[in-house]
Write a protein that binds this DNA or RNA. Structure first.
Length: 294
DNA sequence: TCTGGGGTCCTAGGACCC
DNA sequence: TCTGGGGTCCTAGGACCC
């Protein structure tokens, strides 16, 4: 729900700004607790989520132990999903909420998920759900047995097969704990008052660039992206590949080339700036996980 | 109801090269 | 002079997730 609406509905609600450092600190404590569990391989998914890979004869017991340990150390509750694939574990977590444990494996996958709408799957959103509807595919079970050719024709060679696999519960069970190297960083701002003239827009872009360069921590920049939302809500992106550089002047000049593409005379409601970063050699090839790479 | 911010990955189409 | 196929790179847009 947009904050504006929430504030209107509950006039005396207390609305706090995001406190990223506090959330990161709490998150780190939780993740450290997970890593301290016997035999655990931990793949962090975000501030409040992680895969824990483990071999055990008693998954439920292990899950309960995790919940106790996290609660003891951080006073935070968590729910745990147990699965024989990453997708099943992730979806199982939803059934475990709040503060419970749920097991979802090949054994009960279709019993639990078969009749549910495809949008309940992790990775299927409203758009894909509608396109599947148009193909006559509504349930998870129907997706699982959808003809490969039809799926590929609609969604492309990779995604077509991937969605079908999703209907079957996914196939990967590998928890990967190699530290994540960000592909890029971005900052965007929705302005309280639309930006009108060129100087204003350029100044705003420079502010975003400063922030983004700080996040980039001197890693070489290989690409730039500018996102523009014109009033009322039309969004455009301009991107540019650049020869790897850490030089501020060069990056600024390239960014301004993108800014020059903004339509004159159109009020700008949002500006976003993104940098794409060079990947270190050891993270570039081989095991980098991809969306379609189950 | 009317619009948050920071990410990732995939696809299509065009340009260019061999 | 024109055609064809295959590969790579770039840009824009789309979709999804937390």
């Amino acid at each position: 729900m947009p904050l504006r609406i929430a504030a209107r509905k509950i006039p005396d609600a207390v609305i706090l700004p995001v406190d990223a450092p506090a959330y990161t600190a709490a998150s780190t404590e939780v993740m450290d607790t997970l890593r301290a569990q016997p035999g655990a391989v931990v793949q962090v998914l975000g501030w409040d989520e992680a895969f824990v890979g483990v071999e055990t004869d008693d998954p439920e017991g292990y899950a309960r132990a995790i919940q106790r340990a996290v609660l003891e150390r951080t006073r935070l509750h968590c729910s745990v999903g147990i699965g024989d694939t990453l997708v099943r574990a992730k979806i199982a977590t939803g059934f475990g909420k709040p503060q419970e444990v749920f097991r979802l494996t090949a054994e009960n996958w279709f019993e639990v998920m078969g009749d549910r709408p495809v949008i309940d799957l992790w990775g299927v959103g409203s758009k894909v759900s509608k396109r599947l509807d148009a193909l006559g595919i509504h349930s998870v079970a129907e997706l699982a047995s959808a003809p490969e050719q039809a799926m590929q024709a609609e969604f492309g060679p990779r995604m077509g097969l991937w969605y079908r696999e999703l209907g079957r519960g996914g196939s990967s069970a590998v928890v990967d704990d190699t530290p994540w190297v960000p592909r890029g960083h971005s900052r965007e701002t929705t302005y309280q008052v639309d930006l009108a003239d060129r100087t204003e827009i350029e100044a705003a872009a420079r502010v975003l660039l400063e922030q983004v360069l700080e996040d980039a921590e001197n890693r070489p920049i290989v690409g730039l992206g500018l996102k523009v939302r014109y009033a009322p809500f039309t969004t455009k992106t301009f991107t540019k590949r650049v020869a790897p550089t850490t030089d501020r002047e060069t990056v600024t000049a390239k960014a301004m080339e993108l800014v020059a593409k903004i339509a004159p005379d159109r009020p700008v409601r949002l500006l976003g700036l993104r940098v794409e970063l060079a990947m270190p050699d050891d993270a570039r090839d081989g095991h980098t996980p991809t969306r379609g790479g189950w």
